[in-house]
């Protein structure tokens, strides 16, 4: 158990902060990669999910992609893309975008779909255009579910961004792999603790956002917020 003490000492050691391989730099890299991947995936997945939820067409696509991506080993995707695109950030970034996609798609689709049909019909009969329906009724009502998808995707990506260090000199995963290679358990454990702490913090933060979006309780008992179970990475 004193290993935890060693790992903490490793994290607190001033020499491990600052510079191109410092903890602060790695932390920012990790966050930057995570946000970039989630943002890129969201730019396509959320509009697509909203479209599917609004029109009700293409539902099977959502279910199928969610199931299929869960079965594909993340490491396989990462290494295969790594061989094709070479060492560097492109391959892991692409893999992370692919990973984030299904959760975001499912969240957006389920969120829009979960909006109370009565409210949507009422808004339509008041003369709202389809755009207004989506932006003023369906998305606000389904916001918590959409954020749930975002939360699942972020969690998955921040975890998998650790593996990105296998292919490129990026993120907190570096400490893990460096420690593994040189049998430096404190460094490895320090990396593990930093990644876990970051993931927990992000998850808790997004959980708060999600709760804030939930607003007043819905009239119908439609509390079954469908959060696609994230594939682990």
């Amino acid at each position: 158990m004193s290993l935890f003490g060693d790992a903490l000492a490793w994290i607190l050691d001033g020499g491990h902060w600052g510079g191109p391989t410092g903890i602060d730099t790695r932390l920012w890299q990790h966050l930057a990669v995570t946000f970039a991947a989630v943002a890129l995936a969201a730019a396509v997945a959320i509009p697509l999910g909203v479209l599917i939820g609004h029109t009700g067409r293409g539902r099977l696509v959502v279910v199928a992609t969610a199931g299929a991506v869960r079965a594909v080993p993340t490491l396989g995707l990462l290494t295969l893309l790594g061989l094709w695109l070479g060492i560097g950030l492109t391959a892991p970034l692409l893999a992370l975008v692919v990973l984030a996609f299904p959760s975001l798609l499912a969240g957006a689709y389920a969120g829009v779909e979960s909006a109370d049909r009565g409210a949507v019909d009422a808004a339509r009969s008041l003369g709202m255009s389809e755009w207004q329906l989506v932006l003023r009724v369906e998305l606000p009502l389904g916001a918590a579910v959409v954020i749930g998808g975002l939360r699942a995707a972020t969690l998955q990506v921040v975890a998998t961004a650790t593996l990105a260090a296998y292919l490129s000199d990026t993120g907190l995963g570096r400490y893990l792999f460096a420690g593994l290679k040189s049998r430096d358990y404190p460094q490895m454990l320090a990396g593990a603790l930093l990644v876990a702490a970051l993931a927990l913090l992000l998850d808790v933060a997004l959980a708060f956002v999600q709760r804030a979006c939930r607003g007043p309780a819905p009239l119908a008992p439609s509390d079954a917020a469908p959060e696609a179970a994230p594939a682990k990475g």
Binding site: V158, A159, T162, L176, M188, L189, A192, A199, G233
Partner: peptide, 18 residues
């Protein structure tokens, strides 16, 4: 659910210590 948010690779490194 909190446990689920701990990434897999770090967990593999923490379990042996615990």
């Amino acid at each position: 659910s909190l446990l689920y948010s701990v990434p897999a690779l770090p967990l593999l490194i923490v379990i042996p210590v615990v």
